[in-house]
């Protein structure tokens, strides 16, 4: 009786320990969370602006192609009816409508001499479009950095108590590509020197627009930020 009991307990302890060891092993081996590299696709925005292409490419081929097919309807009916009479002598009404649809497919091969010209036009239109896109892209970049500059200045601008709503001061700020402010000068005074000075102080207080370093395209910087004109109005803190 006693030995039988001990043996069931031994079996039980062994089973239990093995089970737990197995579970721990499993946990340790399969613990690592699967790392699925999630590919974050950057949003591609396509801006389609084809107004120049439509105006230039479409009307051009028309006038060139039109006059050419004109002589064809004359030439075509002649060769076509010839092979026809042999197999089908009786159903004549068929060849009649044929000459009419035939010249139409011929329209495409005809303007071949103009193809190069067309391609050139297309290329120039594409280049124009690209340029336009690039320009608008630059503009977009510039606008976002403008917002950043406004924000920084607005945060640092403490308006004098003498500021009035209709006051307006225009500053010329010179920047270098690191974002450092080189000089600030008043282009158009508001008439209130305290107000002018507070605006100047705000720009000096910022001192350096860190984010401007991130502009990769030096052309954008030269175009929009090297000499920056800022207008200060007290009403809504919009510069």
């Amino acid at each position: 009786m006693f030995s039988g009991k001990v043996s069931t307990y031994t079996v039980a302890i062994l089973v239990s320990l093995l089970l737990h060891a197995g579970v721990v092993m499993l946990m340790v081996w399969h613990w690592e969370p699967e790392h699925k590299q999630r590919k974050v696709a950057p949003p591609k925005y396509v801006q389609a602006k084809l107004m120049t292409l439509q105006q230039k490419a479409k009307p051009q081929p028309k006038p060139v192609a039109k006059p050419k097919p004109k002589p064809k309807p004359v030439a075509k009916p002649a060769p076509k009816p010839k092979p026809k009479p042999a197999p089908k002598p009786a159903p004549k009404p068929a060849p009649k409508p044929k000459p009419v649809p035939k010249p139409e497919p011929k329209l495409a091969p005809k303007p071949e001499p103009d193809k190069k010209q067309l391609q050139q036009q297309l290329a120039s239109a594409l280049a124009e479009e690209e340029e336009f896109l690039a320009a608008s892209n630059e503009e977009e970049i510039a606008a976002s950095y403008h917002d950043y500059i406004f924000e920084r200045i607005a945060a640092n601008w403490s308006r004098p108590p003498s500021a009035r709503r209709e006051m307006e001061v225009e500053l010329l700020v010179q920047l270098v590509p690191t974002g450092q402010v080189i000089s600030v000068s008043v282009v158009r005074s508001s008439g209130n020197s305290a107000f002018d000075r507070s605006a100047e102080q705000a720009v000096h207080k910022v001192g350096r627009f860190e984010k401007l370093k991130e502009i990769e395209n030096p052309r954008v910087f030269d175009k929009y930020f090297r000499r920056l004109t800022l207008v200060f109005r007290p009403d809504d803190l919009r510069l």
Partner: peptide
């Protein structure tokens, strides 16, 4: 909890064998 689990499994197996017997 780990020890509780081990001991309870000992009981489970032992009781299972005992009751079947």
């Amino acid at each position: 909890l780990f020890f509780a689990s081990i001991v309870s499994w000992v009981m489970i197996v032992q009781r299972g064998l005992y009751l079947r017997n």
